[in-house]
């Protein structure tokens, strides 16, 4: 762990300014443009009318939440494999953004479901497994806040993240079984071509913002980690008593 820590610390100490905030501003501008394009360009839906517009925020949030969870799983796996602190910090950052996106997906799904299906919530496989995903993200973050030792927190949360990732398809499958055995029809998805491009553009815009948020959060985590390391190294040299 020694070398990589020193490199991390050195990189953070020497880097003068983080250039990523401009990417965030760009991401917000792109998101505004994508939403305006989506709202203006697409015709109202035959059944839903303008309610279809909610798709442009709901679906990108859902897709990107999955992506964030994938990042958590991959970074966790790499942490268990290589033991580099950076991977743990990346997993934690992606988990925080992912939890936000999953929560947003659920909220938007409810707002969309009420006028179209007539209910705020239904025990449908996709909905239910998204809710479970949300709970697992939150449990992951709570676990991190309850463990103080760095190595222990990193190792444990990597394991919890991986097992959570393993659980998502299992939950989805079991809930689908639960519902289909009870004879619930699920409608097939057909998306008219006039909606696909606005949807894609919005998904990319949200992805850009998500990437920015994860990288920004990650660099903040590295900064915090560096500050802790400086204090630890000083304590090892016997200077800790000065503070």
């Amino acid at each position: 762990m020694g070398v990589s820590v020193d490199r991390l610390v050195a990189a953070r100490v020497t880097a003068p300014r983080d250039p990523t905030p401009w990417i965030g501003v760009l991401g917000i501008v792109v998101l505004v443009a994508a939403q305006v394009y989506g709202v203006i360009s697409s015709p109202p839906d035959r059944d839903m009318g303008h309610l279809q517009k909610i798709m442009y925020v709901h679906v990108p949030a859902a897709w990107n939440a999955m992506l964030a969870f994938l990042v958590v799983a991959l970074a966790s796996l790499r942490y268990l494999w290589k033991g580099r602190p950076a991977d743990d910090l990346l997993a934690a950052s992606a988990a925080e953004v992912g939890a936000l996106l999953t929560g947003l997906t659920l909220a938007l799904g409810m707002i969309w479901g009420k006028p179209t299906w007539g209910v705020w919530w239904t025990w449908e496989p996709r909905l239910t497994s998204t809710a479970v995903l949300f709970f697992m993200f939150v449990a992951y973050l709570i676990l991190r806040s309850f463990v103080d030792d760095f190595e222990r927190r990193a190792q444990w949360s990597a394991v919890v993240g991986l097992l959570g990732a393993l659980n998502v398809p299992i939950v989805y499958m079991s809930v689908r079984w639960w519902r289909t055995l009870h004879q619930l029809q699920s409608s097939p998805m057909t998306l008219d071509s006039s909606y696909t491009w606005p949807l894609r553009v919005n998904a990319v815009a949200v992805m850009l913002l998500m990437a920015f948020a994860i990288v920004h959060r990650y660099r903040t985590a590295v900064t915090e980690y560096t500050a802790d390391e400086l204090a630890d190294h000083a304590a090892l040299r016997g200077e800790g008593n000065r503070v």
Partner: peptide
């Protein structure tokens, strides 16, 4: 996906269903 079928329609759609 499980949202209802989306299809464009001419005009402004069914006005009563446009829950702004």
């Amino acid at each position: 996906m499980n949202w209802p079928i989306t299809q464009p329609c001419a005009g402004r759609g069914i006005v009563s269903e446009q829950n702004n």
